[in-house]
Design a protein around this nucleic acid. Structure first.
Lengths: 231, 231
DNA sequence: AGGGAACGTCACAGGTTCGTCACGGGCTGG
DNA sequence: CCAGCCCGTGACGAACCTGTGACGTTCCCT
């Protein structure tokens, strides 16, 4: 269904071949790398549309690869799915903070894999957010020029922080945002604020959004996510 | 679809050629410049309908180019799209304050590019404010030729600054204006004035406008906005 | 089912922002 | 030179915003 190119990074031959098999069968062009260094080089050279990255790699681990990807201009916005073992689940927070777009826990089913891949590719094709004057996500509309927000057609009166919080959640819709990430994005850099404060503002925002409140989903143990409603 | 002329300013040959290619394909006449000085000269000489300006330029950077464009009569109202590297969220604010109309972050897609170009050309084709002799927004009327203002049919006696402030707010109606932006627009270039002074003038203006005062909305923590009452 | 951790909600104090008043300096026209 | 109007600024109270502790509720794991 698609001719997108996907870079798969894993040092275990078994897993690698399973991934390649399923993705190829779905019609994706697949490139592989077996360590961090190779991943970085290939990402840079081939400019894939998506990267699937195992956390456990010999030498440079997945976090470091991800961090370096995010640091380089030409790869900073590439969608990345992290691949983790079940026992590494606690690590998810760390992964999201470094900039992962999604997670898959081993063992995974073929269906789960392709679902996530499709979702992420679809999203990255959506119109970019940062420069849009007017943003619409389901019943929620943001007029960034006027600095106004609407929910189901009616204007909602948001404070500065609430507005900014909504803006960030919309901009990264579909992706979980940890409390720390939200703090960093909404409150200016390293503010000395309790992460629980984020909860409070999410609650206030939800109240004001009315029916649309449920679009802000709580991801237990991690943070919050605005449900992606891509066409 | 259009025979508009676009000036593209970028010093990187790769990006420049990509831009030229896509824009030409859409039917635009494209002119190029590779540095700030050339951009200013060409903008002056060719009077393009739109300028796409990279922020990072050798010598004079994009901000300075933009500032000079805005300073010169013949180029002051040209629509400008800034081209920036990802990452710099802060730069966006700076850019808008200097007078950018839109932003595109690198890397960008062809679709994003043409969408923004079209949107901006469409917008600038709407009746330009600067040449209207008489402006009517709801109950407020500005006779720019006679330099007189009316609210609900009765003339209101405004001082020079009050008139200019109202003019700027009307010109950018619907959009939030920060105190700094208002200072820049109303008080000519970098006056050393407290931003709180703006509040005072808004207050005076509101008093004189009578019932229409509520059309000037306060956006807490940001600035002011004249409510948009389109036709 | 029980217990604990994570999350939602409430209330409130402190801080910030804004509207307004008052005042003085500066400019202008007579 | 004077009166009158503009205009910038400090002061202050009111309204609003916001961070936090406390407590209730939900969820998950064992």
């Amino acid at each position: 269904m698609s001719d997108a190119q996907i870079l798969v990074v894993d040092d275990e031959p078994d897993i690698l071949s399973v991934l390649v098999y399923h993705l190829s069968r779905e019609g994706y062009r697949v490139t592989t790398a077996v360590n961090g260094q190779g991943a970085l080089t290939t990402a840079q050279a081939e400019q894939p549309d998506l990267i699937i990255l195992d956390l456990m790699l010999p030498g440079m681990d997945g976090y470091e690869v991800l961090q370096r990807l995010r640091g380089a201009e030409s790869t900073s916005s590439m969608p990345v799915i992290l691949l983790t073992a079940r026992r590494e689940e606690d690590e998810r927070v760390k992964g999201f903070e470094v900039g992962a777009d999604d997670y898959i826990t081993k063992p995974f089913s073929a269906r789960e894999l392709t679902l996530r891949v499709e979702a992420l590719l679809r999203r990255s094709k959506a119109e970019p957010f940062s420069t849009s004057r007017r943003v619409t996500v389901g019943p929620v509309v943001l007029d960034r020029e006027a600095h106004r927000a609407f929910s189901e057609g009616v204007e909602v009166d948001l404070t500065r922080l609430e507005y900014r919080l909504l803006e960030v959640l919309l901009e990264r819709r579909g992706r979980v945002q940890t409390r720390r990430q939200l703090l960093q994005a909404v409150w200016d850099t390293n503010a000395a604020i309790e992460t629980r404060t984020v909860d409070m503002h999410v609650a206030r925002l939800r109240t004001k959004l009315g029916e649309a409140a449920s679009l802000i989903e709580t991801v237990r143990g991690i943070g919050y996510r605005f449900r992606a409603l891509d066409k």
